[in-house]
Measured scan of single mutants.
Amino acid sequence: EEERTFTNEEEARKAKKEAEKRGLRVTVTKDGTTWRVRIG
């Protein structure tokens, strides 16, 4: 499991799409101005 943080919503969405392409489970949460993308 890996967690990545982004300040840019577009980049967070891109990371989510890429992980889904690899067949991984992805959770995206917004924490104030930060987007957290949890993969795995």
Score class of each variant (00 low, 15 high):
Thr29Gly: 02
Arg38Asn: 08
Arg25Thr: 10
Thr7Ser: 10
Thr5Val: 14
Arg36Ala: 04
Thr29Met: 09
Gly23Ala: 02
Gly40Pro: 04
Glu20Thr: 05
Glu10Phe: 11
Glu20Asn: 04
Gly23Trp: 03
Lys16Val: 15
Glu11Lys: 03
Lys16Met: 15
Val28His: 00
Thr7Trp: 09
Ala12Arg: 00
Ala15Trp: 15
Phe6Glu: 01
Ala12Ile: 01
Thr5Arg: 07
Lys30Ser: 12
Glu2Gln: 11
Lys21Trp: 08
Lys21Leu: 13
Thr7Asp: 13
Glu10Trp: 14
Gly23Thr: 01
Glu1Lys: 08
Glu11Cys: 07
Arg4Tyr: 15
Thr27Met: 07
Thr34Asp: 07
Glu3Met: 09
Glu20Asp: 04
Glu18Asn: 06
Leu24Ala: 04
Thr27Glu: 07
Leu24Glu: 04
Leu24Met: 09
Val26Tyr: 02
Thr29Phe: 13
Gly32Pro: 01
Arg22Trp: 08
Lys14Arg: 12
Gly32Ser: 03
Trp35Asp: 01
Asn8Thr: 13
Glu1Arg: 09
Val37Phe: 04
Glu9Gln: 07
Val26Gly: 03
Phe6Leu: 02
Arg38Glu: 06
Val28Leu: 14
Gly40Val: 15
Thr33Leu: 12
Lys16Ile: 15
Trp35Pro: 02
Lys30Val: 09
Arg36Met: 07
Arg38Lys: 11
Thr27Trp: 10
Arg13Lys: 11
Val37Lys: 00
Phe6Asn: 00
Glu20Phe: 04
Thr33Arg: 07
Arg22Phe: 07
Thr29Ser: 07
Lys21Asn: 11
Glu3Pro: 04
Thr7Leu: 09
Gly23His: 04
Arg4Ile: 14
Glu3Asp: 08
Glu1Ala: 13
Thr5Asp: 05
Thr29Trp: 14
Glu1Trp: 15
Ala15Met: 09
Arg25Gln: 10
Thr34Phe: 14
Gly23Asp: 02
Glu10Pro: 06
Arg22Gly: 04
Gly32Asn: 04
Glu2His: 12
Ala12Asn: 00
Leu24Ile: 05
Glu10Asp: 11
Phe6Trp: 02
Val37Arg: 00
Gly32Val: 02
Glu9Met: 07
Phe6Asp: 01
Gly32Tyr: 02
Gly23Gln: 03
Glu9Leu: 11
Glu1Ser: 11
Glu3Thr: 11
Glu11Ser: 06
Lys21Ser: 14
Lys21Pro: 00
Arg13Leu: 15
Thr34Arg: 10
Lys30Gly: 05
Val28Cys: 10
Thr33Ala: 12
Arg22Asp: 04
Gly32Glu: 05
Thr27Pro: 00
Thr5Tyr: 12
Ala19Asp: 01
Arg22Cys: 07
Ile39Asn: 01
Arg38Pro: 00
Ala15Glu: 05
Glu20Ser: 04
Val37Ile: 08
Arg22Tyr: 08
Phe6Gly: 01
Val26Ile: 03
Thr33Trp: 08
Arg22Leu: 12
Trp35Val: 03
Ala12Phe: 07
Ala19Gln: 03
Lys17His: 13
Ile39Val: 07
Lys17Pro: 01
Gly23Ser: 03
Phe6Val: 02
Trp35Leu: 03
Thr7Val: 08
Asp31Gln: 08
Ala15Ile: 06
Val26Ala: 12
Glu2Ser: 11
Asn8His: 06
Lys16Arg: 08
Thr7Gln: 09
Glu20Leu: 08
Glu1Pro: 11
Arg25Ala: 07
Glu10Lys: 11
Thr34Gln: 10
Arg36Ile: 15
Arg25Asn: 07
Thr27Lys: 06
Gly40Ala: 13
Val28Met: 14
Glu10His: 10
Ile39Gly: 01
Arg13Glu: 13
Thr5Ile: 14
Thr33Tyr: 12
Ala15Asn: 03
Lys14Glu: 12
Arg36Asn: 05
Gly23Lys: 03
Gly40Ile: 15
Arg13Gln: 13
Thr29Ala: 05
Arg13His: 12
Gly40Arg: 11
Ala12Met: 11
Val28Asn: 00
Val26His: 00
Val37Gly: 00
Glu10Val: 09
Lys14Asn: 12
Glu2Gly: 08
Val37Ser: 00
Val28Gln: 01
Thr5Gln: 07
Arg38Ile: 14
Thr27Leu: 07
Glu18Met: 08
Lys14Leu: 12
Arg22Thr: 04
Thr29Gln: 07
Glu10Tyr: 13
Arg4Lys: 10
Val28Pro: 00
Glu1His: 11
Trp35Tyr: 06
Trp35Glu: 01
Lys21His: 09
Thr29Leu: 09
Val37Pro: 03
Lys16Pro: 00
Ala12Gly: 01
Gly32Trp: 01
Glu3Arg: 04
Glu20Trp: 05
Lys16Cys: 13
Arg4Ser: 06
Arg25Phe: 11
Arg4Met: 14
Thr27Ile: 10
Glu9Ile: 10
Glu20Cys: 06
Gly23Ile: 01
Arg38Phe: 13
Gly32Thr: 03
Glu9Arg: 09
Lys17Gln: 14
Ala12Glu: 00
Glu3Tyr: 11
Arg4Thr: 07
Arg13Ala: 10
Lys30Glu: 05
Arg36His: 09
Thr7Ile: 07
Lys16Asp: 00
Lys30Met: 08
Val26Leu: 02
Thr29Pro: 00
Glu2Met: 12
Gly23Leu: 03
Ala19Pro: 01
Thr34Asn: 11
Glu1Gly: 13
Arg38Asp: 04
Val28Asp: 00
Thr34Leu: 15
Arg4Leu: 15
Arg13Met: 15
Glu20Pro: 01
Gly23Tyr: 03
Thr33Glu: 15
Glu11Phe: 04
Asn8Gln: 05
Asp31Pro: 00
Glu20Ile: 07
Trp35Ala: 01
Gly40Trp: 15
Lys21Gly: 12
Ala12Asp: 00
Leu24Asn: 03
Arg36Leu: 12
Gly32Asp: 05
Asn8Asp: 09
Val26Arg: 00
Arg38Met: 11
Leu24Lys: 05
Arg13Ser: 09
Glu11Asp: 13
Ile39Lys: 01
Lys21Tyr: 09
Gly32Ala: 04
Arg36Ser: 05
Glu9Asn: 03
Arg4Pro: 03
Glu11Val: 03
Ile39Gln: 02
Asp31Arg: 05
Asn8Gly: 04
Ala19Thr: 02
Thr34His: 12
Val28Arg: 00
Gly32Phe: 02
Glu18Lys: 05
Asp31Ile: 13
Arg4Phe: 15
Arg4Gln: 11
Lys17Ala: 14
Asn8Trp: 03
Phe6Arg: 00
Val28Ala: 01
Glu9Trp: 15
Gly23Met: 03
Gly23Phe: 04
Thr34Lys: 10
Asp31Lys: 06
Lys17Ser: 12
Lys14Asp: 09
Glu2Asp: 08
Arg25Asp: 05
Gly23Arg: 03
Val37Glu: 02
Lys17Tyr: 14
Arg36Thr: 12
Lys14His: 11
Gly23Pro: 00
Glu9Ala: 08
Trp35Gly: 01
Arg4Asn: 05
Leu24Ser: 03
Glu1Gln: 10
Asp31Tyr: 08
Phe6Met: 02
Glu18Val: 05
Ala19Met: 12
Glu20Val: 06
Lys16Tyr: 13
Arg25Met: 09
Glu10Thr: 09
Arg22Asn: 08
Leu24Pro: 00
Glu9His: 06
Lys16Gln: 15
Thr34Ser: 09
Phe6Thr: 02
Arg36Gly: 01
Asp31Phe: 08
Thr5Ser: 08
Ala12Gln: 01
Phe6Ala: 01
Arg13Asn: 13
Glu18Asp: 10
Gly32Leu: 03
Glu20Ala: 05
Asp31His: 09
Asp31Leu: 08
Glu20Gly: 03
Lys14Pro: 00
Gly40Lys: 11
Thr5Phe: 13
Arg36Phe: 13
Glu3Asn: 06
Thr33Asn: 15
Ile39Asp: 01
Arg38Thr: 13
Phe6Lys: 00
Arg13Phe: 15
Trp35His: 03
Ala19Tyr: 14
Asn8Glu: 06
Ile39Glu: 02
Thr27His: 07
Glu1Leu: 13
Ala12Tyr: 06
Lys14Thr: 10
Asp31Gly: 02
Ala15Pro: 00
Val28Gly: 01
Val37His: 01
Lys14Gly: 06
Arg25Ile: 10
Arg36Trp: 08
Ala19Leu: 14
Asn8Tyr: 04
Ile39Thr: 05
Arg22Ile: 07
Lys14Tyr: 11
Thr29Asn: 04
Arg22Glu: 05
Lys21Phe: 10
Val28Trp: 04
Glu10Leu: 12
Asp31Glu: 12
Glu18Leu: 07
Thr34Met: 14
Lys14Gln: 12
Val28Lys: 00
Lys16Thr: 10
Asn8Arg: 06
Arg4Trp: 15
Arg22Val: 06
Arg36Glu: 03
Arg38Gln: 08
Thr5Ala: 06
